[in-house]
Each structure stands twice: as structure tokens, then as C-alpha cells.
């Protein structure tokens, strides 16, 4: 893809609002969200729980279609899921009755012959699960199951991969390992990545830009570019500086001293 293609907007969100009916009233989950994601970008969206970041991702995924404003993918309004948009959820959501290979092949449509396809083998290999094709989900560790889920999301070669707190349930060491894997996969696949997380370190380590969201109603508070070369050193001055800057955004917003929160 040429330079022009690399700068085309994959996702264009303008004036997006979303509210839910709760106990007869309406609660605003997202208010006036504006965000443009170029093809090949890696975007981290960070916010505390309940800020609407997952709702935003679900709208992009096409799982929530009842919204106001514009959410466009490749210039077309999003009104349902599409194979060009792969999704990895917080829980692996593998089908317990299918093997790793069959789970990965799920998105290719029915038929067992599909599970032998090139794309399946390639993506199982990409996430490092070669040798575990015949394993069932209950036999996998949390990290391995999430790898399988990533392979399943990638098997249709989506243009955008949407990651909804994908490592939230993993232990700290596995999490770091998976973050590095995701970077490697991003480079290998060249897909646009949108990652939702509540982990500041993760957001800075992975994203080209970190989108900071605030609570009730969910709005974009700031977008911080991360101009650090990869691989990023989590201990470097620039990294820790960015991390504290984002940290400060959250605790200023809380509007009370840190000590009170404890």
C-alpha cells in the first residue's frame, strides 16, 4: 500500500453519542466523540471502568448499532459487524466444543475442510500455538486461550483489529509477553489496531496515540501522541514521563486528593 493509502482514514468518528435506557430514564454513555484512526495506526483508548470505552469499541465493531452521530469505517456508516473488523474480547470466548484449530477456523465459515486452510495454519503459527491445534480450550492456559482468540480474529485478515481489554484477565508477566506479541502481530499483519485498556503502561507501550477518556458522560478528554521508537523501553525517562502525564490526567479529573481515594 502506498503512502497515500497509509494516511487514509480507516475509522472516522464524528459527534458520536450513545445513551442507554436505564430504569425508565436515559443514561449518556458517550458524548460527542471525535476520533480519526488512519490505516495502520495503533490507537490505545484508556479510561477508568464505566467511562464508555468498551461501548465505543462495540460501536466500531458493529455490536451496538443504535447510536447518534457518525461512525464510519472506510467511508461507510457502521451498522453491523463486518469481517474487515476483527474483535478480541476480554474473555477469550473460544467455543469449548471446538479444538484450537476449529476455533481459529470458525470465522472462515462452516465445513471442516476449512480448518485445514493456509490462513488457519499461518495464524496459529503467528500466535505461537503450533503444536496445540488439537487442544480444547479447557486445556489451555489463560494466555494461550487469548492467543487462540487473537488468531481467530485475524484469520479473515481484517483491516482493523479491535481489542477490548484483551489482557485484563491475565497475570502481569503473561500480560507483558502478550503485549510484545501483539506488537509483533501488528507489524506482521499491518492491520489497524484499536486497543481499549485501563492499564496506563499498556496504553503507552503499544499505542501511536493514547486516547484518554473521562467518566460520566464518556468523552474524549485528551489525545496524547506517543512519539517513542519501538521497541519501547518501559524504564526510559520519556516513557515514565508520558506515563506520569497520563496518570495526572486521571487524578486531576477525580477532583479530590489522591489520599482521599485510599
Amino acid at each position: 500500500m502506498g503512502l497515500a493509502g497509509a494516511h487514509r482514514a480507516a475509522l472516522d468518528i464524528r459527534g458520536l453519542c450513545k445513551d442507554f435506557a436505564v430504569h425508565g430514564g436515559r443514561v449518556t454513555a458517550l458524548q460527542d466523540i471525535n476520533l480519526t484512526v488512519r490505516q495502520g495506526d495503533f490507537i490505545s483508548i484508556i479510561g477508568s471502568s464505566g467511562c464508555g470505552k468498551s461501548t465505543l469499541l462495540r460501536i466500531i465493531a458493529g455490536l451496538e448499532t443504535d447510536y447518534q452521530g457518525d461512525a464510519e469505517f472506510e467511508g461507510e456508516r457502521i451498522n453491523g459487524p463486518g469481517l474487515e473488523r476483527g474483535v478480541v474480547f476480554q474473555e477469550h470466548r473460544l467455543f469449548p466444543w471446538l479444538t484450537v484449530r476449529e476455533n481459529v477456523a470458525f470465522g472462515l465459515g462452516g465445513g471442516r475442510e476449512n480448518s485445514r486452510g493456509e490462513s488457519v495454519r499461518e495464524h496459529i503459527d503467528l500466535v505461537g500455538l503450533t503444536g496445540f491445534e488439537q487442544a480444547y480450550p479447557h486445556q489451555l492456559s489463560g494466555g494461550m486461550a487469548q492467543r487462540a482468540a487473537i488468531a481467530r480474529a485475524l484469520v479473515n485478515r481484517p483491516q482493523v483489529l479491535l481489542l477490548d481489554e484483551p489482557f485484563g484477565a491475565l497475570d502481569a508477566l503473561t500480560k507483558i509477553q502478550m503485549q510484545e506479541e501483539v506488537l509483533r502481530i501488528w507489524r506482521a499483519e499491518g492491520a489497524t489496531m484499536v486497543l481499549v485498556t485501563h492499564d496506563i503502561d499498556e496504553a503507552v507501550f503499544l499505542g501511536d496515540r493514547v486516547v484518554i477518556m473521562s467518566n460520566r458522560p464518556g468523552t474524549i478528554k485528551r489525545i496524547i501522541p506517543v512519539d517513542l521508537p519501538r521497541p519501547r523501553d518501559r524504564g526510559s525517562y520519556e516513557f515514565t514521563h508520558l506515563r506520569s502525564a497520563i496518570y495526572a490526567e486521571f487524578f486531576r479529573q477525580e477532583d479530590k486528593p489522591f489520599a482521599y481515594a485510599i
Binding site: L63, L83, F89, F95, G107
Partner: peptide, 8 residues
């Protein structure tokens, strides 16, 4: 079911 939806 949502996974099924995602894969259309």
C-alpha cells in the same frame, strides 16, 4: 452469540 455475530 456475539462471536457468531462478529463473524456475520
Amino acid at each position: 452469540l456475539e462471536v457468531g455475530q462478529v463473524f456475520r
